[in-house]
Amino acid sequence: MSAGDWNTRLTLLQRAQDPDDDQAWEDFTRYYHKFVMVILHQMGVNENDKNDLAQEVLLSLWKSLPKLDFDSSRARFRTWMSSIIHRRVIDHYRKVHRRSNKIEKFRSEEELSESISQPEIEKLIQSEWEVYVVQTAMDRVSPIFSGKAMEVFKLSMDNMPSDVIAEKLHLQRTSVNKLKNRVKDRLLKEIQQIKQEMHLFNE
C-alpha cells in the first residue's frame, strides 16, 4: 500500500456519512466489533450478553455517526463513544433486570453502573484503543515476516541485547539489528495506517 493510497483513502467516518456506501457498514463493524467487545469485556459485561450488547452499541454508533461533525468535535469523539456505550450497557442491564427481576442481578448492575462511570469508560476506550491498534498492526505484520524476524523483534522489545538474541537464534549480530529495525519500521507504519483508516481519534 503506497503513501498515495493513504492520502486519498476516505476515512470510515467520511464513508459512514455517505448513504450510498454499502460497504461502509461492514468495514465499520469489522474494525469496531472486536474493539467494542474488548471494551465490554473490560467493563465486566458477562459473556452471554456481550454479543447482543456489542451489536446494539455498534448500531447506535453507526446511526449517530452522520450527525457528527468531526472537524469541530475531534476531542469529543471519545466522549461520544463512551457515552453511547455507557448508555447502551445501562439500558441493557435494566432490560435484563426487568425480565429476571433478580436482586443479585440488579445489584450487580447497580454496581456495574456505579463502578464504571462514563469518564472511566472514556479512559478505558483510549487505552484499549491503543492496545487494539497495536495488536491489529501486529496481526497484519506477522504474516509478512518470517517467524524468526518476529521473534527477534519481540525479544529486542523485551530489551534483550542484540548479541544475546543473535546467539539464541543463531544469527549474525548485524542481521539481528537489521531484522529488528525492519519489523519495527513496518509495524509503526502499519499502526499509522490503521489510525488513519479508522480515524476515530486523532491523537
Binding site: Q135, M157, D185
Partner: peptide
C-alpha cells in the same frame, strides 16, 4: 487475533504513539 499479539500489544501499547522512522 492471536493472544500472543494481544499480550504483546498490551505490553507495548506505547508503539501506538511512536512515529515511524524518518
Amino acid at each position: 487475533m492471536s493472544d500472543n499479539n494481544k499480550d504483546f500489544a498490551r505490553k507495548f501499547a506505547g508503539l501506538f504513539h511512536e512515529a515511524p522512522s524518518e
